[in-house]
């Protein structure tokens, strides 16, 4: 089985097991959603002494992780995205970010990928709120190769970090040689007509949009941001200086996330017109991913359509 035929959560689990085998400082925490993250039962079985399921108690999981990190351990703690971020936001802010305790927080089933769990579990603001926290880094991998490299990077880094983890299988974008570097965005397609900025799930959607646009002779420059913070401003500015038109797409509310980061950079350095795709300041609902991404306006078709519109505006 090729790596990219696996679910992302399986690769998260594989990578954690690899890291925990190499390094006895790495520990894994869950808050009764380990089956969903993929770590139950495999990590639990492999490392019963370094796996802690704290139960349905996210604030406590964050505090315990802070204490473990304070003592030199490398805690990876995961739960659904809304509980991993907004539910324990003050705990993350004070016990982790402000205290500089380098905990690795993993938010699973981000945005619409929580699908049938619906609006209560559909977090559209984690990128925005985590990005707004000093000392916190914010990552969104787009495929298994990037995920694996990112998790290894996080285990070695001394910074507090947050990563979104889509659980399901996704098409490969990168390959075995991929090396995650938070200071570098990835230009996945070159073009001079419009700059298309995505992260995580929308990077997958944008691949199809870019292919469809090519058939119409529209050349979109597609930039994937595995790290929303730190944010690689140079790659964005180089592209926008060619295109003068930007579309952002994210599995998030349009306020404060990736689109927000893009607008901040452009407003200060190179004002250009930006169309932000994502939930338009609304909550989610139950549904499958194709329905939700279409309804909320960041499906491949919606991305292609926004690129067509923006192309003519520069």
């Amino acid at each position: 089985m090729k790596l990219h035929e696996k679910e992302l959560r399986a690769v998260y689990t594989d990578t954690l097991i690899e890291l925990m085998t190499e390094n006895d400082k790495v520990v894994c925490l869950e808050a009764d959603l380990g089956k969903s993250s993929g770590t139950v039962p495999r990590v639990w079985d492999a490392f019963p002494d370094r796996f802690f399921d704290v139960g349905v108690a996210e604030a406590n999981m964050i505090g315990i992780s802070a204490g473990l990190a304070n003592e030199g351990l490398v805690p990876f703690c995961a739960t659904f995205t809304p509980f991993a971020t907004r539910r324990a936001y003050d705990q993350i802010t004070i016990s982790i970010a402000y205290a500089e305790n380098p905990v690795k927080i993993v938010g699973t089933a981000p945005g619409v990928t929580t699908a049938k769990n619906g609006a209560t579990h559909m977090c559209f603001q984690d990128l925005a709120i985590m990005r707004a926290m000093p000392n916190m880094r914010v990552y969104c991998p787009a495929d298994v190769y990037e995920l694996r490299s990112m998790v290894k990077y996080m285990a070695a880094s001394k910074k507090p970090e947050y990563m979104q983890l889509i659980r399901e299988v996704h098409a490969p974008i990168f390959d075995e040689n991929y090396q995650f570097d938070p200071s570098k965005a990835r230009v996945l397609a070159e073009g001079a007509d419009v700059t298309l900025v995505t992260t995580g799930l929308t990077t997958q959607f944008a691949r199809k949009a870019v292919t469809d646009l090519k058939k119409e002779s529209i050349q979109a420059e597609h930039i994937h941001y595995p790290s929303v913070k730190p944010f690689d401003a140079d790659t964005l500015l180089d592209s926008v200086k060619k295109t003068n038109a930007v579309v952002t797409a994210e599995n998030q509310n349009v306020i404060g996330g990736l689109g927000g980061a893009v607008c901040e950079v452009l407003a200060e350095h190179y004002p250009a017109k930006v169309k932000r795709l994502g939930a338009q300041d609304r909550f989610g609902e139950v549904g499958d991913v194709p329905y939700l991404s279409e309804t909320l306006g960041f499906s491949a078709a919606k991305i292609a359509s926004a690129c067509r519109e923006m192309k003519g505006t520069s």
Partner: peptide, 25 residues
């Protein structure tokens, strides 16, 4: 100072993690 605190309720969870680390080590 071993652990930042001030937003109430958080220090005991951190103490749990610190005690757990003591056991692990």
């Amino acid at each position: 100072v071993d652990q930042t605190a001030g937003s109430l309720g958080q220090g005991l969870s951190c103490a749990n993690g610190i005690a757990l680390a003591g056991k692990l080590h």
